[in-house]
Design a protein around this nucleic acid. Structure first.
Ligand SMILES: [Mn+2]
Ligand SMILES: [Mn+2]
Ligand SMILES: [Zn+2]
Ligand SMILES: [Zn+2]
Lengths: 159, 159
DNA sequence: CTTGAGATTGCAAACCAATTGTAGTAACCG
DNA sequence: CGGTTACTACAATTGGTTTGCAATCTCAAG
């Protein structure tokens, strides 16, 4: 995200992303419903991986059921609107990926803060996998570690 | 795994790995119990990621409870005897990593077959993450795709 | 070898994220 | 506008994982 953008420009950008996602919904034969719009907005404004439960909390004032969030995210994943990420403990997060560049994350195992890594050296390897006969190749890469803040507060703990 | 090794040599190698894992157990202050030995043997003979339930199935004749498998694997993970891998659907597998080189996998999203990739281009990036102030840095990388067999049988399906 | 402290296990119950069934609602096509 | 039917809310259910606890096993000290 460009740090030079004003808030209006950011919101305009968010609107564009929403429109793009809505277009993908329609194109894949899905209906554009109020819960789906609300969930998409939550995903877009988060600008990073987010838990299903947190999505639900954000849209709950509009009374969108948790089961609906699960079903929508499932649909979004199939369509390619969101992508699944993992915590080292195995729990899943979902990230809005429409109109964004391929990237990966550093997740602090202590405070769960998420940082972005814009480099991806894995694309070359995907070709290698393709050459082994695999089709529909994708990959997932996450880095884990203890961030500077947490390392300081933890002092001499090995953890 | 060296394909030139005889079965006896492979078994000897498995025994060596078991001893090494047992040593790690002792060193970390854990007791060497019969269920733990059985689970370690199952992990070693599998030579790849395996589901908790499958581990339990393999050792069930010795009457090791499923809860015990969960607890042991949890301990093994902390000690560094096993490492967690992921299926694209979010389910977890565990792999014996003692005495083995760092590597990654290609998982067929159709038949769930697991292949090994011995190359890891990510090690360099870990240093980069470390330079960002992170400590205790690790990473996880998985490739997903449809293997040659499955692609053939699926014919023209887009999946 | 024997013994005791306490780590570990088996078993059953609890837990909780995720899924499912269904009747009602809302999207959207003509 | 209606009519079709995809979608949603709600509640019940599932299935993988965790937990509490009494019985058991490990292992080090004697
Ligand atoms: Mn991201
Ligand atoms: Mn492996
Ligand atoms: Zn942190
Ligand atoms: Zn396959």
């Amino acid at each position: 995200m460009n740090p030079l953008m004003s808030k209006e420009e950011i919101n305009r950008d968010d609107d564009r992303l929403l429109e793009e996602a809505v277009a993908m919904l329609k194109k894949s034969g899905h209906r554009v419903t109020q819960p789906r719009i609300a969930i998409l907005k939550a995903l877009i404004s988060e600008k990073g991986p987010i838990k299903i439960e947190d999505i639900h909390r954000r849209v709950s004032d509009r009374n969108c059921d948790l089961a609906t969030v699960y079903r929508c995210i499932g649909a979004f994943e199939k369509i390619g609107i969101v992508r699944r990420c993992f915590f080292p403990d195995g729990s899943s997060l979902f990230e809005f990926i429409v109109g964004g560049d391929h990237h990966h994350h550093i997740i602090c195992t202590s405070c769960r803060k998420v940082e972005t890594i814009d480099v991806c050296v894995v694309d070359g390897l995907e070709r290698l996998v393709h050459n082994r006969g695999y089709r529909n190749v994708s990959h997932m890469l996450e880095f884990f570690g203890v961030c500077e803040n947490c390392a300081q507060s933890e002092d001499g703990k090995t953890d």
